[in-house]
Design a protein around this nucleic acid. Structure first.
Lengths: 214, 214
DNA sequence: GCAAAAGTGTTTTCAATACACCCATGG
DNA sequence: CCATGGGTGTATTGAAAACACTTTTGC
């Protein structure tokens, strides 16, 4: 039996969730987009496998992964039986640079989660399941801190919450709750180049509790 | 590579969580207790495998399973490389009867989760991870309904919550919140044979929302 | 000076908490 | 009749929700 590890790596750009995929140069699924994945070797754990495949295929290292889901449908891979274990990672896109480090890869890119390209194998399902997990995790302050290590604005985070929760939030109440939670501090700067009044920039404090917001 | 499915089946007796295990008659791990488990066959999904192993080893069928965790440490099985995927099921112990249906099984029994016997392989870790998941799930009304399909008392559920949350709760406030959540109705009967005043018996209503309590 | 987006304070509402007495049963 | 545990109501506190105007920038 074959086992593969899969990585759903998410970030936020302009208040929109995006997921990282690469495009294959060769058959099968030539031209399709896929999540970074790799077969588990005899002497490797799943955690080691997922780190290595992300590092070798898209050039990101030292990410935090958490287990997400397992996929065992008989024909999820049409060529051989493969059981898939998916991991999730949430990162600050500004802090990383994508490298294309693998010969079979034509391209590496971020995609908005509600506007995916043509996706190979059952990776669309894998992403769908990861999004559910993402939406739970993102409500915790420690996850937020990972994705916004510094220089974020409150309207920016609010927009993200509105996407995740599926409804709008009141600006004043949002701010009040966030400030009372004792998580953030002003950097002193303001967000550049917007239409209206620029928003204050914040960072998370050094040591914060893992509170559930909203 | 070998993959196994593992089942952590929980119930509540007298306000105490218990987990279901069986004892092996033969080496390896002769005399040790283990979770129901089975290797995944080429033409079976994980879900099919976990159902079949629970059915064949302890005689329980038609349970609801949810995926819990995956274990891939190289030496978690000292004899061969096995990756384990664990499932969790929460049941009403009054509704089931254990059958010992497999030759290699000496015994099948429930164990309090904080007082386990000697456990084979890494199943103690598997149980520990399942307990974390259990403690999240049990706070949801739909999970509660599975474990208490009928004829429960509020003090009984309160005792369970106090175990899970790690602190005591006020009887009056507990009741108030539970009743306001619009989940339960009185059966009209009272719990028999206790020391003091008998408690009213309740059942969950037909259709309930999946609310998070406490 | 006008459009666009951000920042701020007060009132109301509802849920969470704290708390003390009475009730039904067994022995 | 007494010990044991279960059931009930009220007052207080604190968080969430509802709500309108002012401020800062770009053009």
């Amino acid at each position: 039996m074959n086992i593969e590890a899969l990585a759903s790596i998410f970030t936020i750009v302009d208040g929109k969730f995006k997921v990282l995929m690469f495009r294959k140069k060769t058959e099968p699924y030539k031209g399709y987009w896929m999540l970074p994945n790799a077969m588990v070797e005899k002497d490797k754990t799943l955690e080691e496998t997922v780190e290595e495949c992300v590092s070798s295929k898209v050039g990101l290292t030292a990410l935090d992964y958490e287990q997400c889901d397992t996929f065992s449908a008989i024909n999820r891979n049409p060529y051989k039986r493969v059981i898939g274990v998916s991991f999730i990672s949430i990162i600050d896109f500004r802090a990383v640079e994508l490298h294309q480090t693998y010969d079979d890869i034509e391209n590496v890119d971020w995609f908005e989660i509600d506007n995916l390209p043509k996706v190979g194998y059952d990776h669309a399902q894998v992403i769908e399941s990861a999004i559910e997990t993402l939406k739970m995790k993102i409500r915790h302050s420690l996850t937020l801190k990972k994705i916004f290590p510094s220089d974020f604005t409150l309207p920016e985070i609010q927009k993200m919450y509105e996407q995740v929760l599926g409804h709008d939030l009141d600006r004043r109440n949002f701010r009040k709750k966030f400030v009372k939670a004792d998580l953030i501090e002003e950097t002193g700067d303001k967000s550049p180049g917007t239409n209206g009044r620029p928003a204050k920039l914040y960072r998370f404090k050094e040591e914060i509790e893992n509170k559930l917001l909203f």
